[in-house]
Design a protein around this nucleic acid. Structure first.
Lengths: 198, 198
DNA sequence: TTGGAACCATAACAGGTGTCGTGGTCGGGC
DNA sequence: GCCCGACCACGACACCTGTTATGGTTCCAA
């Protein structure tokens, strides 16, 4: 409790290792939940000696923040994701395919997506995290709106946001306990697009 | 819900107290997250001596299950909620009002709703909880579908499920970090109804 | 070669947590 | 009256967690 002597401010900076630890943390977060996310659990998951995670992320708060950054990086659409369909003429069908891709990406990366929901709840009670999360989400929405308008599709920010809500809810449902398992995810997405695209 | 058998033997049975503890647990779960949900924390929240929660819910798993039961009870629509608008002629506007009510109920009971999301994530990694949750959700959807059809509104189970997804996502967004704070929640609900009701 | 800085492994410690046991209190039936 | 069971307060204990300290290792520049 005597930090007056001054512990060297230097913190581990090996970025590859830090990233590996963050990935391990995401895995733990998805598998064990917020409750199981501890320094030692991340150490075990990453197969590194006890204490390593503690060296890289001084406090649990720092660890959570680090995970959030990494999740953002891992879930961000790759450039080719965006470019893939850029040369096709815009259409409702194209948009539907685009949204299907997003949902597929999220449900496929179950681990990362669940970890993100977990962090979202953490943000519900940590204002600083909420701010970061809000900025990140809004930036994502901005990009979606830009894409939307560049494609000449109808609807503005408000309408694109509707998809955001619906997709968030759909993915959570599908990842945890589907209420309507008979209907395929793609069908649902198509129905959403049919209704919500003006 | 199907597990209406007795409590595990040799356990406290005072239902009023058990319920009070569950409510305290919900408060803790919402405020501190899954991580902060401990027997002692519930004791403190409920203002009872240390050990009480442990007496009523022998293990943490039992505690979580108990909370889930209580949340179900607290979020279930009261009969008058359902009957309130039953005598008005069915219309899109009436349905919109109905959905607005639901969303308002969820966002107002921030505590309970956040706790429910928390449990949902817990269910993502505990199959037995996922089963209970699935049954509960499906029962809710059944009721919604019945109401929907009784009101003579267009659309079946699949369409009602779309509302389920959209509302889940919307409420989470609103409770944590709204991406589109300018638009009022009621406006959003109206837009969803306009689009998703066939 | 040597100095030192960054990086890493390990230990230590104070506190928190799940779980079980044990005795005490209270109220209603004999 | 008294006794029995339900209900409850409290303590104990082994384990886990966050955090900090410290000494060793590696590697590059002087």
């Amino acid at each position: 409790m005597s930090w007056s002597g001054g512990y060297p401010e230097a913190m581990a900076k090996n970025d590859a290792r830090r990233q590996a630890l963050a990935d391990a943390g995401i895995a733990v977060l998805a598998r064990e939940g917020s409750r199981g996310l501890t320094h030692r659990a991340v150490d075990a998951e990453a197969g590194v000696p006890v204490g390593t995670t503690s060296n890289y992320f001084r406090s649990r708060e720092a660890l959570v923040t680090g995970l959030f950054d990494r999740i953002g990086a891992r879930l961000a659409p790759t450039p080719e994701d965006l470019a893939a369909r850029a040369d096709e003429p815009p259409s409702r069908a194209l948009f539907a395919a685009y949204v299907r891709d997003i949902v597929r990406r999220l449900t496929t990366h179950r681990e990362v997506t669940l970890a993100l929901y977990e962090l979202r709840l953490e943000a519900a009670r940590r204002p600083d995290l909420a701010r970061s999360l809000g900025e990140w989400q809004r930036a994502g929405l901005d990009a979606d709106v830009a894409f939307h308008e560049a494609a000449g599709l109808p609807g503005g920010r408000r309408e694109v946001a509707l998809f955001h809500y619906a997709i968030e809810g759909l993915v959570l449902d599908r990842l945890v306990a589907p209420v309507d398992p008979e209907t395929s995810t793609d069908e649902i997405v198509d129905a959403l697009v049919a209704g919500l695209l003006p």
